[in-house]
Structures are given as structure tokens and as C-alpha cells.
């Protein structure tokens, strides 16, 4: 934990594999273009797993897709940059170069990836296609590696490679997606809700292997989830999103122990826990915003915030480093007192 407590200067020194700056992503709706991600900034460094949490619709998947410059229409990256080490700004890439980066330097598993396999080809065939499209010379080595990864995730590798998608259960497909993301020796790994279709035992096994592969290859990993438990099991750093903003960001243990944003505090407080007094848990009031109900002035969380005050109506709080290594976007005091 202490090694992540760096001074701002040290943070700058340690080069990031991915750095997102001032990123705004909009979707075209019948009320015009509305931002799903607003001026977000985040860095993914080698050897670190970053967890990205937040309610449904907070913009997690949109942000993850932006890292691959893969936001689907009617969405587009409106401003900002995504610098990937050795590649450059991916928001400027297109065509063949972009395709080579995706699945190459940037391994990814999309949300609901259990439905993203090609139904007409066996998994093994798709693996070979993936290898060829990324100019892998040693295809046998690729298959060997895929087989090893599959076995480690509790799959019968030969059966899986010979199967079509409909012959596999949801949980098996999800693990196949993870194998395909890991097999090409990516340097950056992006996993969007990688374990939602799994039961607890399979989830624990998948998180174990993600952690192991991450460590063996010194990857920069981003895990998107709405499950605080998953994040706390694997993440070194934790970023919390609300209404398209990153509202809190810092070393995972510290954020879990001493959340500094009212939304982070509420999310942790609303988690069903296996120990402790069940009456202590509190549901969040209100409902998560969507693009059309999001406040356009002031703090986006103010309707549900127990600490909201007059200033929150007018000023959208910026994400600032309030103590070394920890960032928050809130007018109130980090300990939970009113501004």
C-alpha cells in the first residue's frame, strides 16, 4: 500500500502505459449530443490493476471503449486524448493501424462478451484467425498458450477449442473471451465486467488467473465492474465514476477504508456484506442518472448527496489531488463534513 503513496512528482516520473487526458465522449440523442464521459483523466501504469466502479449508466463502458477508440455510433470522442506508450494517441488512429493495436498491444474483453464470439466458427478457428490478423508467426505456440490459459481457468481446453459458441455455457464463453484477450501478449488489458455471468467459485478462479497473468507480464490492467468486492479483491487503484465524471481515484485500500467522496461512501455503504450488522447497510436514495436527466450545472451527484450545499448547485467540482496520490471532485470536506 505504501508504495502507491507517491508524491505528484514521482507519479509523473513513472511512465504510464495509457494516459487519458481531458476525455469527453458524447452520444447523439434526440436532444442533441450529450456527454456520457466528461473531461475524464486517468492513467494506467505497468504492474497496476485499476478498478473502475460506478452505477449502471455512469459511463464505465464508454470510457473503456474510448481506450480502444472503439466508441460505437451514435457516439464519438469529442475531445481529449488517449496516449498509449509506443503507439501514440489512439483517438487519432484509424483503419489498419487501429485494428492492429486493438487485440495486439491492447487486449480487451467487452461487456457481455459471452455473446461476442462468431457463431459460425469454432473457438479454435477464431483463435487462429486472431493470430493471423496480428501476424503471429508461431501459431502452434499460440494454440499451446491458449490451451494452457483455458485449463488454468477450469475449462476443458480441447473441448472448448472444438466448440461453437452455442455449445458453451455463458460462463464458459466469458472465460473464452478472457483467454482470447490474454493470448496475444498484450501490454494493456481492459476487462469490462469480466465475471458477471459467473458463480462465485468460477469468479474466484477467473480473478486468480487475471491477477497471475497480469503479474507475470507486468501488464497495465483496467477492470470495469459494479461489484465492490471484485474490485477490492484485485485492484491496486480504484476509480469511481458517476454521471460521466471520475469523482474519486486513489490507492484501492485507502479509498475503501477512507472514501473521500460522498458517492464512494454511499456505494460502499450500500454493499451487501457477509459479516457485520445487516442493519448498518443503507440503500442509496434516488436513482442513477442517465444522459437526459444529468445536471448540466453544478455537481452531478447533488440530488442524491447528503452533504449538498448551495455551492454544489452552481459549481461543478473539478477532480483535484487533495492529498498525495488521492483525487476527488467534491466541494465538501473529505472527511464527510459540509463545505
Amino acid at each position: 500500500m505504501t508504495e502507491t503513496l507517491q508524491t505528484p512528482a514521482a507519479t509523473e516520473d513513472r511512465s504510464a502505459e495509457v494516459s487519458v487526458r481531458d476525455l469527453t465522449v458524447v452520444y447523439r440523442t434526440d436532444r442533441g449530443e450529450l456527454p456520457a464521459v466528461s473531461r475524464a483523466g486517468i492513467e494506467l501504469r505497468a504492474g497496476e490493476i485499476t478498478g473502475l466502479v460506478g452505477e449502471s449508466g455512469s459511463g464505465k463502458s464508454t470510457l473503456a471503449l474510448s481506450l480502444l477508440n472503439a466508441v460505437p455510433a451514435p457516439g464519438r470522442i469529442a475531445s481529449g486524448s488517449v496516449e498509449v506508450a509506443g503507439v501514440g494517441d489512439v483517438t487519432k488512429l484509424e483503419g489498419k493501424r487501429l485494428r492492429r493495436v486493438r487485440g495486439g498491444a491492447l487486449g480487451y474483453v467487452f461487456q457481455a462478451s459471452q455473446n461476442s464470439l462468431n457463431p459460425l466458427k469454432t473457438v479454435g478457428k477464431q483463435l487462429l484467425d486472431l493470430g493471423r490478423s496480428h501476424e503471429v508467426e508461431d501459431l502452434q505456440g499460440l494454440v499451446r498458450r491458449a490451451r494452457e490459459l483455458a485449463e488454468r481457468m477450469g475449462l476443458d481446453a480441447d473441448r472448448v477449442l472444438d466448440s461453437y459458441q452455442h455449445e458453451l455455457s455463458g460462463g464458459m464463453r466469458q472465460r473464452v473471451g478472457i483467454v482470447l484477450a490474454l493470448v496475444l501478449n498484450a501490454r494493456v488489458l481492459i476487462l469490462d465486467e469480466p465475471t458477471t455471468a459467473l458463480d462465485m467459485i468460477s469468479q474466484a478462479a477467473v480473478l486468480d488467473i487475471v491477477r497471475a497473468v497480469h503479474r507475470e507480464n507486468n501488464l497495465a490492467t483496467l477492470i470495469v465492474t459494479h461489484d465492490m468486492g471484485v474490485v477490492s479483491e484485485v485492484a491496486d487503484r480504484l476509480a469511481v465514476m458517476y454521471g460521466g465524471r471520475i469523482v474519486e481515484h486513489g490507492p484501492a485500500l485507502e479509498v475503501l477504508q477512507r472514501p473521500s467522496h460522498p458517492y464512494t461512501r454511499a456505494l460502499i455503504g450500500a454493499t451487501a456484506r457477509i459479516v457485520g450488522d445487516t442493519t448498518r447497510a443503507r440503500a442509496l436514495p434516488g436513482r442513477p442518472p442517465d444522459l437526459t436527466t444529468l445536471a448540466t450545472t453544478g455537481c452531478v451527484f447533488r440530488d442524491r448527496c447528503p452533504l449538498a450545499s448551495a455551492v454544489c448547485e452552481e459549481e461543478d467540482p473539478a477532480l483535484v489531488e487533495w492529498t498525495p496520490g488521492r483525487y476527488r471532485a467534491c466541494h465538501a470536506d473529505p472527511t464527510g463534513d459540509r463545505p
Binding site: M200, A204, L207, G229, S232, E233, L253, L256, R273
Partner: peptide
């Protein structure tokens, strides 16, 4: 039950 994620920092 062992497979339930632990909320590290709090648990």
C-alpha cells in the same frame, strides 16, 4: 463461502 470476494481494507 471462501470464494466470496473480501472487501479488503474493511474486511
Amino acid at each position: 463461502l471462501s470464494a466470496i470476494p473480501v472487501l479488503r481494507g474493511i474486511e
